Structure formats: C-alpha cells, structure tokens
Computed example of a mutant assay.
Amino acid sequence: MPGNGKALAAYGRAAHSGLMTSTVVPDVTAAAERIRPYVRHTPVLRAEVDGRPLVLKLEHLQRTGSFKLRGALNALLAGERPEQVVTASGGNHGIGVATAAAILGLPATVFVPDGVPASKARRIEAAGARLVRAGTRYSDAAAAAREDAQAPGTRYVEAYNDPVVVAGQGTVAAEIVADAPEVDAIAVAVGGGGLAAGVALGSGGRLTVAVEPERCSCLHQALAAGHPVEAEVDSVAASALGATRVGEVPFEVLSGPGVRSLVVGEAEILAARDRLWDEFRLAVEPAAAVPFAAWLAGAVPGEAPCVLLCGANADWTP
C-alpha cells in the first residue's frame, strides 16, 4: 500500500468515484492474504430488530477482542521484519500490537495513558508486551512512545494514521462483502479513523456511515472544519474512541462523498450496548455499540445495512 497520505487520498477519491477495483482492492486483498493465517474470519448475524432487517458483523469475537489485530499484523508483515515493536494505545490497539508481536516472536512495548482501563492494561501484559504508563491522554503516550521508538531496528506501529494499518482494517469490510453481499451501507464507530477508512476502501463502494459519540467526535468536527482539528474527549467510549484528532491519512479517505458522518449521545450508546445484550446476548464495549445506537435511532440509511461491532474489551456485566 502507498506510504503517504496523498497517494491514499487519490485512492480514496477513486473508491468513491467507482474507480477503485484496480488500485485499492488489491491492497486490501493483499492484506487479507497476509494476515489470514493469524486472524479469525468473524461471522455475520442476520436479524430483524424493531421490524427492520439488520446485519451485524461480530468483529468483537476477533481473537484479541477487537479489529485492531488486523492492522497491527499487516503493518508488521508488510515490510522488513523489525527487531522490536513500540506503539501507543488507549487499550485495544495495544492489545492488537502486543498479540501480533507475540505471534511473530517480537518483543513489544506499549505506552498507554494513566487512565487506561485496567482490563485492557491486563490484556496487553497478558499478551507478553511491556506496559508503560505515560501522561493523562493518548497524545502523551504517543509522544513518549515515538521517543522510545528511535532505537535502531524498532518499528513504531501507528494506531490509525498509516495506509498499511488502514488496509489491514479494511479486511473486515472485505469479509462483510463476501459473506453478506446484499449489504448496501456499513455503520462503523470512529476513533482516529483507521477502521472507518479501511471500511470505505474495502467495502466495494458501499456507503460508510461513520458514527461517533457527541463528546468524542474528532472526525465529525474535522469534516465541518474541512481539515483535522483538536476535539474534546469525554465519553463512556473514550478508551477506544478517544483520539483528540482524526488521522490525516483516514481523513483524506473519509472526506469523500461515499461517507456519512453521524454522532450519538451517551445515553443512546449505553442503551444500545444493553440492547445488544438483551436482544442477542452479545456483550460488547461501549465503543462497539456506537453505530448500533445510530441504527436504532433510524439514522443509518440503506435497505440492508450492516452494523460493525468492533470490540469487547471491557469488564462489563448487564
């Protein structure tokens, strides 16, 4: 996959104009082949809720409890093998990178903000990575991680602002298209934008519905401003969606015409999370319920929409 935002921007424009088959799809396809031995092809669930058809992509059943393993593996497998791996994370990305590194026999260090949920910190360490707490925000942890990653032979794995990571995340959309070709829109939660951008590039031109919490909406605010901007992070879903600024690489893709940006409230998120448990016995973290909240509110268009449930890394009981 191209190594800069301008190239990916061109791919994003091609995707939204219907000219993507010769450029973008092979990259997502290559990522899928690369990571296939190590990830689960997660199932889809067709259902009817409130009299409306719905497809749920159960990516929270991925082996790390979220989609993040896909992008981490693609990043580590696509280039020259590093001697060690460093990253920064609010939780799920760190679990994905730690697991990817363990699979490939590489030492990993994950920097996290002080407020990282205990369950996610525990999973990072259980995967074999060294956990380092740095600052109160993700940006603090990222700055510390980048400094640590200056050592020779070290690969810094971006959480979302890297075309190779975006391509890896796009493999989840490719699975949706393969397993539920009738889907005409995919609703997905947005943090830094890597997953949503991957969905846009890997979904064969289907509408991407990018959904964020009202108080954690860096993409929505960037689209309004016309460029990435700093945004507040104050949401029950912040540990997974807590980027203060959408990545420039994802923004280039998500600012195209094939994307619709929505926001939902905190009460809607928690109600959607509880509904997923009550209706289907699906236990997900709040971030995964964000697109379902938008669907329940009737805001997701399409005759056969899919809601992507992105993660389940939370200690939660109904």
Rank of each mutant, 00 (worst) to 15 (best):
V116I: 15
V263E: 04
G193P: 03
L201K: 03
D315H: 12
A151C: 05
P152G: 10
T109N: 06
A14K: 11
E158K: 08
G302H: 08
Q221T: 11
R130S: 13
A293N: 09
A271Y: 00
A222Q: 05
A267D: 14
L276S: 09
I95F: 07
R215Y: 07
S217M: 04
V190K: 02
R260P: 00
K120I: 01
G128I: 10
T109K: 12
G105C: 09
P257A: 14
D274V: 04
V97N: 06
E83L: 14
A287L: 04
R36S: 12
G258Q: 06
S203E: 02
G202W: 03
V259F: 01
H60K: 01
G135W: 09
D184N: 03
L219R: 09
V253G: 02
W277K: 00
N92E: 08
F111T: 02
G265L: 07
T244V: 06
P318H: 09
L54K: 12
G202I: 04
E59G: 04
I124S: 01
A243Y: 14
W316H: 14
T29N: 03
G3H: 14
P305T: 01
A144Y: 08
P53E: 01
P163A: 04
F280I: 06
G192L: 11
A7W: 00
V28I: 15
R123N: 05
A178Y: 01
E175P: 06
E125D: 03
V157C: 07
P2K: 04
A173L: 04
L77M: 13
Y38E: 00
V199L: 06
G79I: 14
P82E: 06
P213H: 10
V166F: 04
A237G: 10
V177T: 09
L8Q: 02
N313Q: 11
P318I: 12
G247A: 02
